[in-house]
């Protein structure tokens, strides 16, 4: 029963995404919509991403300073740990989990509202490929913008780590910078971008699916929005594990 429900939803999801890949009716309209989405998702998420990133870095630095205190591990390792943990894991994963809540619920509510108010039917009757016009620009925009946000998040996290450790005397400026510059593996940056692209795809396409097939009623819309966030979060963590297994 559960498996057949999964197959039903997965099939419908694939059909929606497949239909969305059809050639756009008018490239300029899709381009305009993609730009609008980039602005909404990218610029619209700057403050929240910046805020959480500062604290991610700060907490990581303070936590590891406490863990390493009294051990033989050199202090500069704190800078190294802050850098690698944010780049490999915290920046892409935490940022995308937060974006799944902010952007994902917004997408589910927006498309779901359009479904309930018959906007999608109106577009269908005009001849618009609705899964193409409503879903694909969001997916493309997020795949372009979210890796940028994640890179910014990683950078701000490192600054957050610095702010929480150097001025408070946990370690010196030289030690932190030495740590940040030690044992750098370029491949980790690639890993961060792979994760952010995969997570971006999940956190837009899953909520879009939830909104696109919403039934009538405000309770259904609320449920779709909740499901969108919960499912996106689970899938982000699952894919995080898969990527970790595959690439490390």
């Amino acid at each position: 029963m559960l498996f057949s429900r999964f197959l039903y939803h997965f099939g419908r999801y694939l059909t929606m995404m497949g239909t969305g890949l059809a050639r756009p009716e008018k490239g300029y309209m899709y381009y305009k919509e993609t730009m609008r989405q980039m602005n909404d998702i990218g610029i619209g998420s700057l403050i929240i991403v910046g805020l959480i990133s500062i604290f991610i870095g700060a907490v990581t630095a303070v936590q590891f300073a406490y863990q390493l205190d009294g051990t033989l591990v050199p202090q500069y390792y704190i800078g190294y740990i802050v850098r690698d943990s944010t780049i490999i894991e915290l920046a892409p994963t935490i940022t995308c989990l937060v974006l799944a809540g902010k952007v994902g619920s917004n997408i589910a509510a927006e498309i779901g509202g359009m479904r309930q108010k018959e906007h999608i039917d109106a577009m269908e009757i005009m001849g618009v490929n609705t899964s193409g016009y409503l879903v694909m620009p969001k997916v493309v925009a997020s795949i372009v913008v979210i890796p940028m946000l994640v890179a910014l998040a990683a950078f701000i996290s490192i600054i957050g780590g610095y702010a929480a450790s150097v001025p408070t005397g946990l370690l010196s400026h030289v030690e932190f910078v030495q740590g940040v510059r030690s044992f750098f593996v370029e491949r980790n940056i690639m890993l961060m971008f792979i994760k952010s692209v995969v997570f971006a795809f999940i956190l837009t396409s899953v909520p879009a699916y939830q909104g696109y097939f919403v039934k009538s009623g405000s309770i259904e819309l609320g449920r779709a929005s909740t499901n969108a966030v919960v499912l996106s979060d689970i899938l982000i963590l699952l894919s995080d594990y898969v990527i970790a297994v595959l690439f490390t």
């Binding site: 108010k117 018959e118 906007h119 039917d121 109106a122 009757i125």
Partner: peptide, 9 residues
């Protein structure tokens, strides 16, 4: 085809 919806849409 043109369509007028109940709630205008």
């Amino acid at each position: 085809v043109g369509m007028l919806f109940q709630a205008s849409a």
